[in-house]
C-alpha cells in the first residue's frame, strides 16, 4: 500500500471520532443545569426578551432537532456566532486565533524534540555514568514540574530581573512591519517574534522534552541490546555508526508513540502558557468563552482542539509508517 493510500485510510477513520467528539461536546453543553437563555440575555431581561432569544437561537426546538441542525451546520463550517464577541462567527474568531497557537505548538515541539533526542541518545550511550544520571534526574524533574510555574519563573528571571526577553504577548513572524512596535523591516519583525517566542516555547516544551528524553533513552537502550545491533558489531560497524544509523531509526518508533501522547498534553499546556504570557491564541479564547459562558464559542473551540489533536496524531502515525516498513505495507506478515 502506498503512503498516500495509508493517509487516506487514516483520514477516513478520523470522521467517526470527530463525530463522537461533536456529540459528546453537544450533550455536555446542553446538559447545563438551568436555562441557558437566561444566561444569554442576562438577568434583567423580561419574559418577552427571553422568548425572543429562545426562538432566535433555536432553543425552542427539541434537543435532537438542534443536534441534527448543529451537525449539518458544522459540516459546512458554520459553528454559530459568538455572543461575547458581538455576533462574530465562531469560525472566524477561531481562524484568527488558530495560527498563534499553532506557531507556539510547532516551536515548542521543535525545541523539545531537538533537545530531547540528542540528550536521550547521549544518556543511553553513557548508561549509568554520571551524565546519564544527570539526564535522568533532569527529565524526572521535567515531567514533574507544572509548566505554568516554569513560565512564571522564566518571566521573573528573564523579563523582570534581567530584562532580556518580553514577559508577554506574541508577534507573528509574518505580521506587516508597520503593525509591530519599533519594527521597520521584515528582519525586525522576525527578531521581535523570536524574542517573544522563546519563553513560551520553553514553558510549553519542558514537559515534552523531559518525556521524550526518557523514552528516547530507554528505547535506545532496548534497541542496543537487539540481535541486529550485536550483528552489526560483529561485522565491525563502529559504535558511532550504530548509534546514528542502525539503532537510531528503530529507537524512534516508541518515541513517536510518546510524541503522539504528548500532543494532548501540549494542547492543554498551550492554554496555560497562553494564560501565563497573555498570548491571544486558542487557549485564551476558550478561557474567555468559558468565563463569558459563550456556549457556541466553547463548543467551537473544543471541537477545534480535538481536530488539532487528531490531525497531530495522524502526522505521527504517518511518520511511524514511513519509518517502519512493516506498517505501510499492511503488516500482515508479522
Amino acid at each position: 500500500m502506498t503512503t498516500a493510500g495509508y493517509i487516506g485510510r487514516r483520514l477516513l477513520q478520523i470522521v467517526p471520532v470527530l463525530w463522537f467528539v461533536v456529540t459528546v461536546t453537544f450533550v455536555l453543553i446542553n446538559s447545563i443545569p438551568g436555562d441557558p437563555v437566561r444566561i444569554l440575555v442576562g438577568p434583567s431581561a423580561d419574559a418577552a426578551a427571553i422568548e425572543a432569544a429562545r426562538v432566535q437561537y433555536g432553543l425552542d426546538q427539541p434537543l435532537y432537532v438542534r443536534y441534527v441542525k448543529y451537525l449539518a451546520a458544522i459540516a459546512t463550517g458554520d459553528f454559530g456566532t459568538s455572543i461575547h464577541y458581538g455576533g462574530v462567527p465562531v469560525t472566524a474568531k477561531i481562524l484568527e486565533r488558530l495560527p498563534v497557537t499553532l506557531l507556539l505548538l510547532v516551536s515548542s515541539f521543535t525545541l523539545a524534540i531537538g533537545t530531547a533526542i540528542p540528550l536521550g541518545v547521549f544518556a543511553a550511550k553513557n548508561r549509568n555514568n554520571r551524565y546519564d544520571h544527570l539526564a535522568r534526574i533532569t527529565s524526572l524533574v521535567g515531567v514533574s514540574t507544572p509548566s505554568f510555574w516554569v513560565g512564571l519563573l522564566l518571566i521573573i528571571v528573564f523579563a523582570y530581573y534581567t530584562n532580556l526577553l518580553p514577559p508577554s504577548g506574541l508577534v507573528m513572524p509574518w505580521a506587516p512591519p508597520g503593525s509591530v512596535e519599533g519594527a521597520t523591516s521584515r528582519l525586525d519583525v522576525l527578531a521581535t517574534s523570536a524574542s517573544h517566542l522563546i519563553l513560551p516555547s520553553i514553558t510549553l516544551g519542558t514537559l515534552q522534552m523531559a518525556a521524550i528524553t526518557r523514552i528516547e533513552r530507554s528505547s535506545m537502550l532496548e534497541v542496543l541490546n537487539k540481535d541486529y545491533v550485536q550483528l552489526a558489531r560483529a561485522y565491525g560497524i563502529s559504535e558511532r555508526t550504530i548509534l546514528r544509523k542502525q539503532a537510531f531509526k528503530n529507537a524512534q518508533l516508541p518515541v513517536l508513540t510518546v510524541i503522539g501522547i504528548q500532543i494532548t498534553t501540549a494542547l492543554g499546556g498551550a492554554v496555560l502558557t497562553e494564560t501565563v504570557f497573555n498570548i491571544n491564541g486558542m487557549g485564551n479564547l476558550i478561557i474567555t468563552a468559558v468565563r463569558a459562558q459563550d456556549y457556541q464559542l466553547i463548543m467551537g473551540t473544543t471541537i477545534f482542539f480535538a481536530i488539532m489533536f487528531v490531525l497531530g496524531v495522524l502526522v505521527v502515525d504517518v511518520l511511524y509508517a514511513v519509518i517502519d516498513p512493516r506498517i505501510s505495507y499492511g503488516g500482515a506478515d508479522e
Binding site: V17, F20, V24, T265, G268, I286, T302, F309
Partner: peptide
C-alpha cells in the same frame, strides 16, 4: 473520543 479532546480542554468544558 474522550481521549481525542485534550484533557485540560475536556475538564474545562465539563466545568463550564
Amino acid at each position: 473520543s474522550l481521549y481525542a479532546i485534550p484533557f485540560l480542554i475536556l475538564v474545562i468544558a465539563i466545568m463550564s
